[in-house]
Design a protein around this nucleic acid. Structure first.
Lengths: 335, 335
DNA sequence: ATTTTTAATGTAATCGATTACAATAAATGT
DNA sequence: ACATTTATTGTAATCGATTACATTAAAAAT
C-alpha cells in the first residue's frame, strides 16, 4: 500500500506539501508541485479516503433508502438523486428496505456511525419521532413519501390532489360506481391517495360503497386479488382507481381473466407512470410523478443542509400530470 | 459527538477496556463490562466507523456496479447480493453505470480509495486488462456479464447454450425464417446470445439471412425499431429471438402496430424473464435466469475472497430455464 | 509464604491522511 | 542594507477508534 509518506519521500518534501498538492490549495510552488505529481504518478498513489474522511469528518457519501428497489418508480427517482450526487462529488450508498419497516429503520444507524453525510428516504414508515430526532443531528430529506405535519424537509407531489384528479377524470367519464384499490393505509401515500379518492367522490355528490374500497399492498398480486373480489360482487364497479400502476395492472389482468374488457367494460387508472405503464395493454391512464426531478430536488436539498445553507422552505410539492392513455372509456348506458 | 473517551471517563476505565467491551473480546470482567455498557447507553454512544475502519483497514462495505438500475433484471440480482451481504454484516454501495462504460470504470477507483472491501460487477464492459489488474489487488467478482478466457471469478449462466436452447425451441415449432435482435455486440452476453443463435441455426441446417440479424441495445425502443425494419422486408421472419425481454416486448409491440399478430403470425422469445414478462401480453416465452441465486452466489464468492479462503473454482455456471408462455406458436403453411 | 500462572486493565503506538502553527525563504519597501 | 511582508515548506497535533505491549491484581501451584 502506497502512503502519502512514500510520495513525500520520493519527491523530497514533507507530507504536508503532498497533501497540499492533492487538495489543490494553490500554495505550493509550481516546480515542487510537479515533482510531487510525478511521484504520485510513478507510485500510482491514491489517497486513503478513510483517513481523509476521519480527519475531515465527512464521507462524501449519502445514503438512500428505498422501500423496494425492484419497483422501477424508485429506481427512476434514484437516477435523479445519483445524477446530482455525482455532479457534486458524492457517492450513493443504497439501502433496499425490501418493504420491511425494520430493515428500513436499521439503515438509519449508518448515519450515527459516520458512514454517510446525509440521508434521503424514499420511504417514511419508520416511527416519525425517531426520524425527527435523527434529523436534528444529521441531514435528512424525505422524497416521495413523507410524514404529516412535520418540519422534515420533504419533496413530493400532492398525492391527495393527484388522486382527486384521477378520480375526477373517471367521474368526468360518467362513472358513478367507482372502486378504489388503495395502497397500504399505514403508508402516507396510500392514505393520501385514498383520501383524494373520497374527496373527489364527495365533491361530486357520489356515495362510496365501502365494499368498493379495498386495501392492497402496492403489488401486482394484490391488485389482481382485490379486483377479483370486486368482480364477484353483485354489482361490480365500472371503474377503478388504483393506488399505483402495478396494482392497476393486476386489476386489469383480473378483469380480463373474467372476460371483462378494459376499457370497454371497466375503466382503470393507475398511479406513478412507471416504465411499463405505456407498454402494458391497454396502455395505462395514470398519474405521472416527476421522478427524475424529485430525485434531483431531494439531493439538492440535502446538499444545502449538509453545507449549512438556509432552506427557503421545507416542503416542496412538485407537479404531477394525468397521462391519458387507453385504459378508460366513457360509461354508456348499456356498457 | 460522543467519543469512546467520554464513555471511558464515565465508566472510570480506559478506552482500551471500552473497546474490548464493544468488540466483545470476552476479556473484560463482568462487572466492568456492565459499567461500560451502562455508560454507552446513557451517553447513547455509537462508535465512529471511520476510525474503526481506518485502524482495521476494512470497511464492511462492498461495491456493486450495475449497468442499469432501472432494469428489473439487475435489481433482482441485487436483491440476492444484498441478502447475503446483510447476513454477513456488509453494506452495499451501489454504482449505477447508466449504460455508460466510462461511468462504470470511474466506479473502480472506490476500491483504491479504500471505501469498499470488494466489488461485484454486473457489467463487464471496462477494459479487461484494467479489471484483471484491479483484481490482483482487490477482491472482485463478476456476475451476469463476464470476460472471455479470464480467470476472474465469475458467476453467470451459459448464455451461448441458453440462446441455442431458445432458438431451437423456435425451430422445433417448424420456424425456418428466424430473425435475431441481438444485444450490443460489444457486450459479451450480446455476443454470446448471438453466437448461440447461429449455432442452433447451423446445427439444424438452417441458413441465416444476414438482414435478419440486427444489433439492438437491450432497450424497448431498439427492439421496436428493429422489428419495424424486419417487417418492411420483402420476406419478413416468422419468428424472432430477442436478446432480452425488453427488446422482445418492443418487437411484439412493433408487430402489433403493423397488424401482425403474436403468436399467430409471429413467434417471439425473449431473455431474462423479468418481472413483467409474465404480465405482458402475450405472456413472453423466455429464458429465465436465476437472478436471486446468482446474486447470492456472487456475494458468497466475494466473501470467500475477502476472507482469503480458497475458491474451489473460478467460473460458476448456474442453470437457466426456458419458460414457455404464449408468445410462440407452431408455424403452419398458411400462417 | 513465595513463586508462577492467569485474568483484567491501562498506556501509548498506530492506522493515513489533514491542517494549525512554526520556520524559513523570497520579495518588497524604505 | 535592513525591516517588513508574503510565499513556501516543514513539524507535529489531530481525527477516534483498535491493539501490542506493559502492568497490576487475583488465583493457582509449590
Amino acid at each position: 500500500m502506497v502512503r502519502i509518506a512514500d510520495v513525500a519521500r520520493m519527491a523530497n518534501v514533507s507530507t504536508a506539501t503532498v497533501s497540499r498538492v492533492i487538495s489543490n490549495t494553490g500554495t505550493v510552488k509550481k516546480e515542487t508541485a510537479e515533482k510531487v505529481l510525478e511521484a504520485i504518478k510513478k507510485l500510482n498513489y491514491q489517497p486513503n479516503m478513510l483517513a481523509r474522511q476521519l480527519r475531515r469528518s465527512e464521507t462524501e457519501t449519502i445514503l438512500v433508502v428505498v422501500p423496494d428497489i425492484t419497483n422501477t418508480f424508485f429506481s427512476a427517482v434514484l437516477r435523479g438523486i445519483e445524477s446530482v450526487a455525482i455532479e457534486n462529488g458524492y457517492q450513493v450508498l443504497l439501502g433496499d428496505a425490501r418493504n420491511n419497516v425494520d430493515t428500513e429503520t436499521s439503515y438509519l444507524t449508518i448515519l450515527g456511525q459516520k458512514k454517510a453525510d446525509g440521508l434521503i428516504l424514499l420511504t417514511a414508515r419508520t416511527d416519525q419521532k425517531i426520524l425527527e430526532e435523527l434529523s436534528h443531528d444529521y441531514p435528512v430529506v424525505l422524497a416521495c413519501e413523507y410524514y404529516e405535519g412535520t418540519q422534515l424537509p420533504t419533496v413530493s407531489i400532492d398525492n391527495v390532489s393527484s388522486a382527486r384528479k384521477a378520480t375526477e377524470y373517471l367521474i368526468s367519464l360518467k362513472h358513478k360506481r367507482i372502486g378504489h384499490i388503495s395502497g397500504p393505509l399505514n403508508v402516507v401515500v396510500g392514505r393520501d391517495r385514498c383520501k383524494g379518492f373520497h374527496q373527489a367522490m364527495a365533491k361530486h355528490g357520489l356515495s362510496v360503497d365501502p365494499s368498493l374500497v379495498q386495501e392492497g399492498e402496492f403489488s401486482f398480486e394484490s391488485g389482481f386479488n382485490l379486483m377479483m373480489k370486486f368482480l364477484s360482487l353483485e354489482e361490480p364497479p365500472t371503474a377503478i382507481f388504483a393506488g399505483n400502476d402495478e396494482m392497476a395492472m393486476g386489476a386489469v389482468k383480473a378483469a380480463k381473466s373474467k372476460g371483462v374488457r378494459v376499457p370497454e367494460d371497466l375503466s382503470v387508472v393507475g398511479f406513478d407512470d412507471i416504465k411499463f405503464a405505456s407498454i402494458f395493454e391497454p396502455a395505462l391512464t395514470t398519474i405521472a410523478q416527476p421522478t427524475f426531478d424529485m430525485g434531483q430536488k431531494a439531493m439538492h436539498l440535502l446538499l444545502k443542509i449538509i453545507n449549512d445553507e438556509e432552506l427557503e422552505k421545507n416542503q416542496f410539492i412538485l407537479s404531477d400530470k394525468l397521462i391519458v392513455r387507453n385504459s378508460c372509456k366513457e360509461l354508456t348506458i348499456d356498457g
